[in-house]
Amino acid sequence: MSDFFKSSSPSSSLPEMTAKKEAVMNGVRSEIALASAQELINKTNEKCFAKCVTKPGSALSSSEETCLSRCLERYMEAFNMISKTYTARLSREREQRQLAQI
């Protein structure tokens, strides 16, 4: 990531600066997205293992695998639902605060 900040010439042109700026922004965006995806993977692993693999055998059974893939879908669905509800709540409270200030 630190590559983004390095430069060959000390005084740089405007297009070069814009390019570097874009690179920094994209780097930040992709790191944040990666961290969020990793968190989601860890959480689904933990939750779906707890729900679907109740008695670990010598291999995952086909019913366990079915359960795992459904669990994964449901967890993503829950995540999206909660994201929507939470953002709605936040904007509702922001509106109320703005109204209270008037």
Binding site: I32, S36, E39, L40, K43, K47, C48, K51, C52, C67, R70, C71, E73, R74, Y75, A78, F79, I82, S83, Y86, T87, L90
Partner: peptide, 22 residues
């Protein structure tokens, strides 16, 4: 905000999803 959504999902999943995922 995203981190809070992760925490809330985890907490609410444990509380609300009691059946085997269908």
């Amino acid at each position: 905000i995203n981190a809070t959504v992760h925490t809330l999902t985890s907490m609410c999943w444990d509380k609300c999803v009691t059946s085997t995922p269908g």
